[in-house]
Write a protein that binds this DNA or RNA. Sequence first.
DNA 1: GCCAACGTTGGC
DNA 2: GCCAACGTTGGC
Length: 151
Amino acid sequence: MACWLMKSEPDEFSIDDLVRTRTVPWFGVRNYLARNYMRDQMKVGDDVLFYHSSCPEPGIAGLAKVCSNAYPDETQFDRKSKYFDAKATRESPRWMLVDVELVRKTRLLSLAELRSIEALADLIILQRGNRLSITPVSPAHWKIINKLLKA
DNA sequence: GCCAACGTTGGC
DNA sequence: GCCAACGTTGGC
């Protein structure tokens, strides 16, 4: 079972929103590598670290799971959406997503705290210049983070 | 608001 | 296919 870190801007969709909705289609990803992770590698049951980005307190805010296979992101077809993509068609959709379901809201494990832990130094989101909204997390990193979330 | 880093676009 | 220009991300 793989583990992933998925960034969301809480202004757009926060962990509290997920507590309300229980599941969410991970709409709006417009980066090919992140799309490929969802389309080609994610499996139902994979673990997800739900991360708040571009906000006053960035960090991991909850645990979730992948709960669907990949399917087309509806927002690419919606002219009124900021995620509309004129080059995408229903016959050949460009953007795929998976559904994510809540496991539980956790304490906020802040970016600063993540950075302070030596064993997490090579976590992808901590690397200089990393901007990817979906990144794989190794089993070793997952174990450490999971423990920290319980603390 | 700044700015480093990176992805995408488009002319050639 | 190269690469400069531009746009976006996201922490600070």
